[in-house]
Amino acid sequence: MRGNHGDFRAPPWADRSHWSSGGWQPGRRLFRIVLLVTVGFVAVPVLASAALTATFAGWTSVAVAVVFWAAFVVIGALLLRFVFRNLRIVRDLISTTGRLADGDYSARVEGHASPAARPMVDSFNRMAQRLEVSDELRRQLLADVGHELRTPLTVVRGELEAMADGVRDLSPDQIRLLLTDIAVMERLLDDLRTLSTTEAGMVALDTESADLGELASDVVERFGPQATESGIELTLTAPQPVPAMIDPYRIGQVLSNLVVNALRATTSGGTIEVTVCSDHFDDRPVAVVTITDTGRGIAADQIDAVFDRFHKGEDSSGSGLGLTISRDLVHGHGGTITLDSDLGVGTTVTMTLPAGG
């Protein structure tokens, strides 16, 4: 089926091949229903009139029959209006389902539905909209992945071809360059694998009560040499143990992503401050981490997009997936992550996680 989404399959009743002479035929089914209703509407009043005529005599029977027929016609008209109105909705649903099955995710059920059918139509249109958005995201993801892989692959191929043609010697510097580009591709593939599991809610979190301050200390210590080499002051403030219910490996991954982003955005002479503390959020205890840098900051019109896949600054060397992965991992813990930034001043990322025992 065109426009396939994972395991999505159109139901049999949406497959137009089943509408042939040997399968389900909605047009004939609806015709039979309407025919039976019409026969019923004719037969019932005829029989009822005969019974009334036998019961009453003279003008009394005529008056009763007229009243009965008038009431029956009014009720019948209202009922038929309701039936045909909903049959039109069923017909539109069948037609739209066929278009969705053919990959046209812009298809929607139009027209006015009865109050009884409106929730069904609204739900169907919301489903179609989600399919359309999902298809667009899938196409965009494939385009972004192709773009991100094309540059390092082009470099590696060019260097190897130059070496094969004898234009360039196989030197340690050239080998390091190739290894660097290969590492970029490996990091992108690792990030994509992590992203696919986090967005699908399939990440297995091995949560335990752990000291978030100690975890942050390990991350700061790991990136300390890189910060010193770049002339950046990287500090940690964690005055006391801060217990949190977390998967230490996954939250360590989030903290590493955030510190790496801060290092990339901060120039020599700048500072990065990591603060860990306990607090309350919506009347529940939480562990809070803030990472504040004095880097280049982010423009106001870009802040809402920082957690989108493959969104990154013009001079960023990352994959553009770090913040997306961090957001999904934090949300998987039942926490929150926000970002505030002023262009030319710096950025602050705040993360809250459930407090530990």
Score class of each variant (00 low, 15 high):
5 H>D: 08
6 G>S: 03
13 W>A: 05
16 R>F: 09
19 W>Y: 13
20 S>K: 13
22 G>Q: 15
22 G>Y: 11
23 G>E: 01
26 P>W: 08
26 P>E: 01
28 R>F: 05
29 R>N: 13
32 R>K: 11
33 I>T: 13
36 L>Y: 14
42 V>Q: 10
44 V>F: 15
44 V>Y: 12
50 A>T: 10
56 F>Y: 14
57 A>C: 04
60 T>K: 06
61 S>L: 02
62 V>K: 09
64 V>E: 07
68 F>Q: 10
68 F>A: 10
70 A>Y: 04
70 A>E: 04
75 I>R: 13
79 L>M: 10
88 R>M: 08
91 R>A: 13
96 T>H: 10
103 G>T: 06
105 Y>V: 11
106 S>F: 10
112 H>L: 08
114 S>D: 09
116 A>E: 12
119 P>Q: 02
123 S>E: 01
125 N>K: 05
129 Q>R: 14
130 R>K: 12
132 E>H: 12
135 D>W: 12
142 L>F: 07
143 A>Y: 10
144 D>L: 00
145 V>D: 00
146 G>F: 00
147 H>Y: 09
147 H>P: 00
152 P>T: 08
152 P>S: 05
153 L>C: 03
158 G>V: 02
160 L>Q: 01
164 A>T: 10
167 V>R: 14
169 D>E: 14
171 S>N: 01
173 D>C: 01
176 R>V: 11
179 L>R: 15
187 R>S: 15
188 L>H: 07
188 L>Q: 04
189 L>H: 06
190 D>I: 07
194 T>Y: 03
194 T>D: 02
196 S>E: 14
198 T>K: 01
200 A>S: 14
200 A>K: 14
201 G>P: 03
203 V>F: 06
203 V>S: 09
210 A>M: 00
211 D>C: 09
212 L>R: 05
229 E>D: 13
231 G>E: 04
235 T>P: 00
238 A>E: 06
239 P>C: 02
240 Q>T: 06
244 A>L: 07
244 A>E: 01
247 D>M: 07
247 D>A: 08
251 I>A: 01
256 S>W: 04
256 S>E: 11
257 N>P: 00
258 L>T: 05
258 L>V: 11
261 N>D: 13
261 N>I: 01
268 S>L: 03
271 T>N: 13
273 E>N: 12
278 S>N: 03
278 S>D: 01
278 S>F: 00
279 D>V: 02
282 D>P: 00
290 T>G: 07
291 I>H: 04
292 T>I: 03
293 D>V: 02
295 G>Q: 02
297 G>S: 06
299 A>S: 13
301 D>P: 06
302 Q>M: 10
302 Q>L: 05
303 I>N: 03
310 F>H: 07
311 H>S: 13
315 D>C: 04
320 G>M: 02
324 T>A: 15
328 D>C: 00
329 L>F: 01
330 V>H: 07
331 H>V: 15
332 G>E: 08
334 G>W: 09
335 G>N: 04
338 T>D: 15
339 L>D: 08
339 L>Q: 05
340 D>Y: 01
343 L>G: 02
346 G>W: 02
347 T>M: 02
349 V>N: 01
352 T>K: 10
352 T>S: 12
354 P>D: 09
355 A>K: 09
355 A>N: 07
356 G>P: 03
